[in-house]
Design a protein around this nucleic acid. Sequence first.
DNA 1: TCTTATTGTTAAATAATACTGAACAATGAG
DNA 2: CTCATTGTTCAGTATTATTTAACAATAAGA
Lengths: 297, 297
Amino acid sequence: MDKLNLMTSFIAVAEEGSFTAAANRLGKTKALISTHISQLEDLLKVRLLIRSTRSMQITSEGQSYYEQAKKILDDIVTLEAQLLHESQSLVGRLRISAPTTFGELVLMPCIAELTSANPELKIELLLNDRFVDLISEGFDVALRIGNLADSSLIARPAGFTRMFLCASPEFIEHYGEPESIHQLAELPCVFDTNYRHAGSWSFTQDQREVEVRPHITARVNSALAAANMARTGRVITYCPEFAVHAMLEKGELISLLPHEYKSQIPVNVIYPHRQHLSTRVTIFTQYFIDYWHRMTG
Amino acid sequence: MDKLNLMTSFIAVAEEGSFTAAANRLGKTKALISTHISQLEDLLKVRLLIRSTRSMQITSEGQSYYEQAKKILDDIVTLEAQLLHESQSLVGRLRISAPTTFGELVLMPCIAELTSANPELKIELLLNDRFVDLISEGFDVALRIGNLADSSLIARPAGFTRMFLCASPEFIEHYGEPESIHQLAELPCVFDTNYRHAGSWSFTQDQREVEVRPHITARVNSALAAANMARTGRVITYCPEFAVHAMLEKGELISLLPHEYKSQIPVNVIYPHRQHLSTRVTIFTQYFIDYWHRMTG
DNA sequence: TCTTATTGTTAAATAATACTGAACAATGAG
DNA sequence: CTCATTGTTCAGTATTATTTAACAATAAGA
């Protein structure tokens, strides 16, 4: 028995003053209205309407029930409208998870743009290079650099970031420029442990994947830290473009063997579900993808 | 689709933190809870719970919906409890309709007793000798003297009132005491027009009904007025006991032919319905019937 | 790392109920 | 008094609610 239906029928009867009129208003038969009222009275154990075959009169209990029942139905309508509005507006928090360097260098400028365009949107960005469980840690959305493990999460590809092999001018002055990626096995390298493979770098050479195990003199869980180490010391690093872009521009780092290999890794936006997604997630995802395309051409 | 059921399921899940636990709490299967949540999300077009196969997390929309939905369910419980209490308590109004003389002489003392025993009960007594439509005029209960017309109303017999043929000592002094009811055709009589037959009085003589058409010198729509006229003038009246009781006691009126006939008319309590009767009506009805039996022996 | 027990989901089957349509008795309007 | 209209009832049908069982995913334990 659908109690809200019974209440709706009763309210229609109370307002129309007749079972037949109430049935017409609700698009149902008078027979149904009649059983609804009876069921409601049996349920409440209170007589709501005094009715002869032709006339009807609401009892004082019925009047009191009518007023409060109407308020409850209104509350439900309000609640649902409000909830829908809430989920479809930008008002509210958006919790984002992202890798540290990527967050610092790429995401923050993107979010700065987004929030200045939508001031009512509140972003909570948590940067972390360890594995993050979106669901148990309550994130709405996450950014992932690199290939994804299978999961129940939804991934939207945003594009790619190119990988750069770089060293400082000082390094080149000292060691000379390498002539092949295979020389990395003998040259001092700093390894970003966020990179997916443990201890090897992957290059695309003539459309084939080539794995090289560099001579690692330092390991660090940050692409930016690795790039800075290469900038200030005598080591080679293999970093995504966003981490070394500025240093390459300034000439603080030199791109090695740029014609020898090509390599890029995917950038994905990850979120828990596809159905009934809040517009905050949709808006952010689209904005980031547009931003990324704008930046990477 | 029973929306309240869906809400109940969701609230249970939100509080238990698990579909299985919620199912146990509600005595249903987890399969049902699962479809309930899906239905509710489809209905609201909002994702309430983020769930992997084993863990779950409430969304911010879900949290907000939970709080308000819980309040609405509470409101319904409160409303129903309050309504039941209202109908089962004496608090509130009781609208009573009764014939004028009967109300003045019998009902008022009865109500005086009842309300002094139950001070929270508010009585609204309307005395009227015309026909009263209980339903359209919004009465909870009515008292009727005499036989009833068929109707959809419920009648509870309270007992009977005896009819007395009376005249003043002065009348007897002047006309002498009649020896048979058939003499009424020639003696001056005052006729109470509330009496059911128009222009004739009915007596029970040797278990048979006898109709007599008295010589009517005056008509009045009040038994008490008729009795007063008989008391102060030279007319015979035929009145229910309650109207003439006091005057007979004081010797202001004399009962005529007390062994010649016996006649009594029913007293009924009338109310609209039997189902879900408010206790006010039940209490009043029982109290009046007890009072009437006490008074008439 | 592999197994195990438990989670939420899904599909098919069944139980329950909502709803309709027609026949009915009651009654107010004309 | 007649007639159209009211609320009620009942039987039949359509729809929905619920369960059962099989399933894929996963956290915990070995």
